[in-house]
Each structure stands twice: as structure tokens, then as C-alpha cells.
Design a protein around this nucleic acid. Structure first.
Lengths: 250, 250
DNA sequence: ATGTTCGTTGCACCATACGCAACGAGGTGA
DNA sequence: TCACCTCGTTGCGTATGGTGCAACGAACAT
């Protein structure tokens, strides 16, 4: 561990709480102010901090650059893996991670159920848009224009008795999903399985993926499934945090 | 300048371009890999970088925290001042910065016209919602619910012959503003002045303020005013960048 | 004017960050 | 299976670079 780097980073963290003067910083990290000054100068040269007026330091603009640039090549799958694994281990049910790309919803990660009864799915598989919870979440998050274009060209084959089979009903469902922040697949895809899904957001608030829990009906009735929603949303929140999302108060 | 801090920050900047291995980093900054390892460990302890698998380093999540936290207490006015000042000096016209809070639009900064003909306004003054360009921009950016609530309780006194005097016309105007990304006040507030305004966004893309240019009609006709729009939008983009906004490609 | 509170500079010392070289783990090819 | 190669990791001795000190200077207040 490098002492000076450690101190410099501590300074940055302190400044995250608001602007500080040199003396305040020196006292907070318990280092001589001349030392703090040198560290700040180095940080300033890299635009990690900037001076405000003559006696105030604050965080610099490099942090925005860095945060955003790292987001771009950040692999969502890897970032959210721990959160999803935990959900899978805690509930024992199948957990899916899906993302939307070019008019399709694709499963990009999967954690198998620990129960005997499993469902078939695999990474890379395309999810039907009209009867899966993840697709509902992802489509509901699209821009109105893109969403309308997509829905206009969709087909609605009835896979079970509960499948949504009309664009109108689907649009209404999407609106409901967007409103409440999670989606339900109530045996709309397969007779013996139902799911709930929630969105994962990045630093900008854009929905970058959806996480779902799939449960065989024989194991858990609808009430039991809905009881999982808070746990699911907690996972989605954790996963979003790993992608840079910070919930904005008020 | 502190050598180790300097090197550590350089490492962070390198990692912003994508994940790297220890050797790559050592070579890039031209220091021994054992040294780089120690720096990375320190950075890792502060969550500035994180390991991906066993032989990949990438930026850590602390950067998101920091970037967002610094945004919150960041003073928009101070951040965008240089951009607005430049617009004012270049065009010579009055430039306003306004923000929305609790149902009101307030001028929070102002750069006076250099021409003889000035307009009256002051920092802290409330802008009429129905007939100013800044208000149109800010109200158009509200959530549908908040916007509807606001418009429902608005009054539409006719201040000039051009003032919008009905909720319906105002709603249509807001939609047009949202669509094209800037707003016009075509002598709707005062007979002898017209304005254009554009939104300023933060890192999350939320509209945090609006910048406007106000021009006396005697100086510049409507064509001349509209010719200022590209310049205005450039300023808004610059100001947004200072608030952390990064335009997303595609 | 006088005092106070900051940021800033030069300097001498020694802690600390450094490079080196050797080790170990994990992967690859024959 | 073994040998080889490529990385990350560790311990160590050294001198470089970071540190605290004390004095200076600027800005502001009394």
C-alpha cells in the first residue's frame, strides 16, 4: 500500500462530501498541510480536484469523464453477477439476466434452479417479446417511437391460455409495467412456470438489462411468486448500483 | 508533485480506455510491475479500480459514487458560468440562466447586453411560465405528471399580442419544444424583445437549467434571432458538459 | 496599524516507494 | 505428463521522493 496514494484518494473521498479548504483537509487526514497541498496539486494536474476561488477545493471534472468512459465498455453481465448469484442462492430459483438489442431480447446470463424441477433456457436464447417478464420490462423502457415501431411488427401467438394476444392488451401491459417498475409473466409462456422481472439501470438511468426469477407453479403459487417481488427489486437495485446507478432522492 | 500519486492517477486514466493487465500497465507508464502492483492495490482498496478475473484490471465503482456525489453539491451556476460568459461576449446580447424549482422558474444568473438597449431583469426574479423561452424549456422537461399538474393551475394573461393564452396551445408548444430541443419566445412577454432558450443537462441527462439569449427586436429580426440558435445550442452543450453530461452516441 | 487566518516555499531528514531478482500459479504445447 | 512460458506476487536493500517543520506572504478583519 502506497502511503501518498492512499492519502490522496482519501482526500478525494473527503471532497466528495463537499468543498473543503486546505486546512480542513489537513486536519481530517491528520497530515501536515504542506503535504496535503502537494497531493492536491497532483490531483489537480489530473483534474481530479479543482480549486474553487482561492480557498476551496472540490472534485474535478475528470471523474465524470472516467465514470462515463468506464461505463461504456463495462460488461453488464460481469458487473451484476454477484447480485444475481446471491438472489439465486437465497431463493433457490432460476434467475435470468436479459438485455435488449436491435428488436430482440436475449438471455445473457442464467443461474439454474436448485430444485429438481428445472426449466429449459440457455444463454443466448431469444425471449419472446409478448409473453416473458424480462421482455416486458425491457420493451416498456424503450423510447415511445422505438417501442411503437416494435409492437407494430410483433406477432402474438398464444402459447398458453394466459398469453397476451393483442397489441392493445400488450400496450396496456407495458404501461402498467412501466408504472409499477416490475413485470409479471403469469403462465403466459409456459403453463407450469411463472416469473417476475425488474429493470437494471446504469449511471444515466437507462435500462440496460432485466433480471427475472422463474418459479414452477407446482412449487409456489401466485401469492408466493408475488412475495418474491421485494427481494427481486432489491437485487435489481444492487445490480444497478454495480452499473453506476444511484437512486436520486425526492 | 507527488510521483506515486501522479503514477496512480495515470493508471486510472489508462484504465478508462479499457481493462488492462498488470504488465500492460507497467509498460505503459514505464515503471516496474511490482510498483504498479502496489499502486493498483492501493487504488483497489479505495475501489478506484477493481480486478476482473485474475489478470484484468478495470475502473472501480467508487468513480460513479464520486462523480454523482460531486454533482449533487455542484453549483450549476458556477459550472456553466464560463460557457455563458463566452456566449454573452461573442453575441453581445443578454444571456440568462434559469432553473425550475417547486413550480417556479427563477433566473439564477444573468449577463447583460453590451448594446445600448437593455432589458429589465434580475437574478432571483421569477419568470412567467407561459411566455418565456426558459420556462418553456424547463416545463417541457418535467415529468408528464408534474407538468400536467402545473399547467392545470396556470393562468395565461395576455402580455402582448403574441402571448399564448390557452392551456391547449401551451401544451402543444411544450411538445414542440421538447421535440426540437429549444424554445422560442416570439415577443410573447414584451413587445420589443424576443428570445431563444435551450436546456442544460447533468450527468444523468436530467434538465437542470435553461440558458437563453434575449434580443431587442429593433436590433435583430426574427431571422437573425433564429440564426443564433446553433450558437445557443453549442453553449448549452458546453454548459451541459461542465455539469457532467456526455452526449451518448447512436 | 495590528492581528489573524489562510496558502505557499525551502530545506534537511529519513521513511517509504522503488527496482531487482527470485518464486509460484496457471496455462499451453509437445 | 512434463517442460516451458507468461503472468502476478513477495522480500529485500537502497536512495529517492515524500514528509514535517518553520518561516514567509497574501488576504481579510478589527
Amino acid at each position: 500500500m502506497s502511503q501518498s496514494v492512499d492519502r490522496a484518494l482519501t482526500l478525494v473521498e473527503l471532497l466528495a462530501e463537499g468543498p473543503r479548504t486546505l486546512d480542513q483537509l489537513a486536519e481530517a487526514v491528520d497530515v501536515h498541510k504542506s503535504t496535503v497541498l502537494r497531493l492536491l496539486r497532483t490531483l489537480e494536474a489530473h483534474r481530479f480536484v479543482q480549486r474553487e476561488g482561492t480557498r476551496q477545493y472540490r472534485l474535478g471534472t475528470a471523474l465524470f469523464d472516467l465514470a462515463h468512459r468506464s461505463l461504456e465498455d463495462r460488461d453488464v453481465r460481469r458487473a451484476v453477477e454477484p447480485a444475481l448469484r446471491e438472489l439465486n442462492e437465497e431463493t433457490g430459483h432460476t434467475v435470468h439476466l436479459a438485455s435488449y438489442e436491435d428488436g430482440e431480447v436475449v438471455y445473457i446470463d442464467k443461474f439454474d434452479s436448485k430444485h429438481q424441477v428445472r426449466m429449459y433456457s440457455r444463454i443466448g436464447k431469444r425471449a419472446p417479446l409478448h409473453c416473458t417478464a424480462v421482455a416486458k420490462v425491457l420493451v416498456a423502457a424503450l423510447s415511445p417511437a422505438e417501442r411503437d415501431g416494435l409492437v407494430a411488427h410483433m406477432e402474438f401467438p398464444a402459447l398458453t391460455a394466459n398469453t397476451i394476444t393483442s397489441p392493445e392488451a400488450y400496450r396496456a401491459e407495458l404501461a402498467a409495467v412501466a408504472e409499477r417498475g416490475w413485470a409479471l409473466d403469469d403462465r403466459e409462456h409456459e403453463d407450469f412456470i411463472h416469473c417476475v422481472a425488474a429493470p437494471i439501470r446504469d449511471a444515466r438511468g437507462d435500462v440496460v438489462a432485466a433480471v427475472s426469477v422463474s418459479v414452477p407453479v407446482v412449487l409456489t403459487g401466485k401469492d408466493g411468486l408475488l412475495a418474491l417481488v421485494p427481494r427481486l427489486r432489491a437485487t435489481a437495485a444492487l445490480a444497478s448500483a454495480a452499473c453506476g446507478w444511484i437512486e436520486r432522492k425526492k
